[in-house]
Amino acid sequence: MLKVDRLGKKYGGRWIFRELSFELGVGDRLVILGRNGAGKSTLLRTIAGLTSRTEGTVMLPEGDSRCTLGLCALEQSVYGQLTVAEHLQLTADLRGCPARIDELLEKVNLDYARSRPASQLSTGMKARMKMAMAIQANPAALLLDEPGAGLDEEGRMLIDQITAEQATRGCLIVATNDPLERRLANLELQLV
């Protein structure tokens, strides 16, 4: 489903990571652990195609990557002037998939803030909105970067629920600093 072969990324003459290989199938949930600056986020971004790779290959799930790949990252920015519902409509229009606004907002428990501009959302609310956008097209591969950051207890339970659902339709990669988030995975990759 998702295959990474001898992947390497070099930036400014320094290797961020090198010789990384793994293959994930349906139901596989991989957690990437490592110290700060180990390259966890860069690895996720490289897999998603947002950063160019220096060597190696990445085979993404079959189909249009706009729909087969979902990414939710802590540092991902959103449009301050657009409301929560408008964000979901925008990403659905661009991906060419159904918007499912009501269903997604109910799932991430953000229905009450659907008409609120993103600039007026808290960090946790933004994280929920980004999660809703990431799972909108039911992606075959879901990439989560620090998914628990900024979330309350209820939000963490939501992450558990979403990752469990993802395991039934595809694979999941979680990059985190938090050892507790190993609970989300059945495989781990320690960047050393």
Partner: peptide, 16 residues
């Protein structure tokens, strides 16, 4: 500057 270009890169085709 706002970092929203990444969201577009992820979900949109360049021509659109």
């Amino acid at each position: 500057e706002q970092g929203t270009a990444e969201l577009l890169r992820l979900v949109a085709r360049p021509h659109s």
